[in-house]
Design a binder for these strands. Structure first.
Lengths: 351, 351
DNA sequence: CGCGCGAGGTTTTACGTATAACGTCGATCG
DNA sequence: CGATCGACGTTATACGTAAAACCTCGCGCG
């Protein structure tokens, strides 16, 4: 057995009786008219036989490209972001690109430098919503580095669900969250609800700002609407607490709860039931995102389906386009209201 | 503005009036006694001023190490694996290592080659449970490549929740799933349940084989136990179907449903309720994993908490040890039965 | 005084790849 | 028949870094 080291292109060349350059040409696929088909076949056969794998570090060094993109998300344990990753990884793999995740379990903070920590050299960055906002702080810090293009560190940057006004992004992929929120409120309004509480995420990111604004705009146009808002930590427990407060506050009790997120909605349902209220008979609840959770709870949640993996896929496609010097196609993805069991007609004589 | 290219160590050297080697020495931290403190400071200052970042491709090429590990999981959208990733990434980051995920949205298949697809060169592989089993098929394929150490491609390999008898792994981290299953059945037995159905995952991986074996062993020792088993696709819908079958099958109806997974348990609860059965009054349900889902549904699920992130962390620690030539400490992590609302005393006169 | 030696560097080399620049040799053509 | 050309390769080089090997003082010491 030859020593522990992996075979290099030179080993293949020696074994096949050609030069290293020829191996590189053949395996790189650019041998048409430069190498005879017979030789090319021989090289390929030898490479296969030796189990040759190109050293990616060397290739990256040579090409100045790493075929690796960084995906910045706040937390993979949030199913939404896991799905974004899935979509992004799928497209990346199809283009022989890799995806590395921003290695921050505890969320993005200005103190951390993603480009020191990210081990691989990167060709581009794709930052999703909540992460993108935090990234803005960092870009100030990294401004000392020569900025040639959009992102921090001079890397092409694509933003998902982020403020289009935000500087630095070469492209943006947005979900039509405002429409989603309008559909939710429209649905509730059609059911007769007027006293509506918004259980909002305490996270101050673009995604949630949009939802809030859309909720406000939609309810403002609704005659007779009485709206309140509670902010909640983004968890079942958080949703439970905020909803409890909303339902027990002095004044007329809301008949509908619009939650920023399915997880919050699950908490809201629990809170309502603990107060002896039936969902949706006494109070209607809506979620957002259409996570697996939405159909796991009872009643199943009326919610807004977000094409998370599609967003990830589009984002990666846009990033690849930018890297290739093309102008990416801006995309705004439609969302869909999923009407399920957690919403119903406004009770005639509430309280 | 100097051209679009990033500053190299040579740029820093020129700017600081020293040689490139000195820059490398200083920034590498091995300059004690080789470079004067004054010069070292000057170099550091210059590097900072220019915004110098080492080219990781070049460094990897030189060192033959990439400080990158591959984490192979079947699906990140499964919260369990997302948590494994979180733990692994945390430990990796602490050791200045990166984690790249196996880019397979549709699961590991023998047809795909993880080491061709994984863009970064790798220092090691950590494969979790379900993925590890599929990996076994691949290692046969890659056997053509010179195998120097455990994993495919001669890479150090750590397996999570996998068959210890499986060859190739330099280390294994296991959760004490058998104990978890024993605790579940013990809990149900203490509540008086004897007719118990096992809603098992259709996935044939080590994790689930262990659960099945432990369930069988525990119920075998239970006097008067009447057990059945249904296999289900790993989803709410799958759990619902299998449970429906289990509850409507001819013969005495089970009073307890032991599910391989929280998602299945959520489906089981839905199925029971659709049949007019109350949980836990008429039928008790247990889950496994303690996902966020477990406390989102009502009643909250009695389940087995798995320290997923701890497993990921230990796995990464073990891998780092192997890479450093140390012998990793084998770890078996304890699990904990979380008794919540989905289990109760066996009804006195069921059916 | 010659010599060793340590401090403080510098020169050089190698890592494995992709590709530009450069042969070589037979056939073709003006 | 000499020049040209295409087919088929080879040689040489650069990417940026880490580190081994080497150089050059000034100084202490036998």
């Amino acid at each position: 057995m030859p020593p522990t080291t992996r075979p290099t292109s030179r080993d293949v060349a020696r074994e096949a009786g050609v030069s290293q350059a020829t191996v590189s040409l053949v395996l790189g696929g650019k041998w048409r008219g430069r190498v005879s088909p017979a030789t090319a076949d021989a090289v390929r056969e030898t490479a296969l036989r030796l189990g040759y794998r190109p050293n990616l570090a060397a290739r990256s060094l040579r090409l100045g490209r790493t075929r690796t993109a960084l995906l910045v998300v706040p937390a993979l344990t949030n199913e939404y972001f896991a799905r974004v990753h899935t979509g992004a990884a799928r497209v990346a793999a199809a283009h022989d690109f890799g995806v590395v995740l921003y290695p921050s379990p505890e969320g993005v903070g200005p103190a951390r430098d993603p480009f020191g920590s990210a081990r691989a050299a990167l060709d581009g960055v794709i930052a999703s919503s909540m992460a993108a906002d935090a990234l803005a702080a960092i870009s100030g810090e990294t401004a000392a580095a020569p900025r040639t293009a959009g992102g921090p560190g001079g890397l092409p940057l694509v933003m998902l669900d982020s403020d289009p006004a935000q500087s630095g992004a070469a492209a943006t992929v947005n979900l039509d969250l405002a429409s989603g929120m309008r559909q939710v409120t429209g649905h509730l309004a059609a059911l007769g609800h007027r006293r509506i509480a918004h259980i909002a995420s305490a996270v101050d990111s673009w995604t949630f700002r949009v939802r809030r604004a859309a909720f406000d705009a939609a309810t403002r146009d609704l005659p007779g609407a009485v709206v309140t808002r509670r902010t909640a930590a983004l968890s079942v427990e958080g949703g439970l607490r905020a909803t409890h407060d909303a339902l027990t506050a002095p004044g007329a009790r809301p008949t509908a709860l619009v939650c920023d997120d399915d997880v919050l909605a699950a908490g809201a349902c629990k809170a309502a039931r603990r107060l002896g209220l039936r969902v949706p008979l006494d109070v209607s609840v809506t979620g957002f995102d259409d996570l697996a959770l939405a159909t796991a709870v009872e009643p199943e949640l009326t919610t807004v389906r977000l094409p998370a993996d599609e967003a990830g896929a589009r984002g990666m496609a846009a990033l690849l386009a930018v890297i290739d010097g093309l102008s990416p196609q801006q995309a705004d993805l439609p969302v869909e209201l999923m009407i399920r069991g957690s919403t119903g007609p406004c009770p005639v004589e509430p309280r």
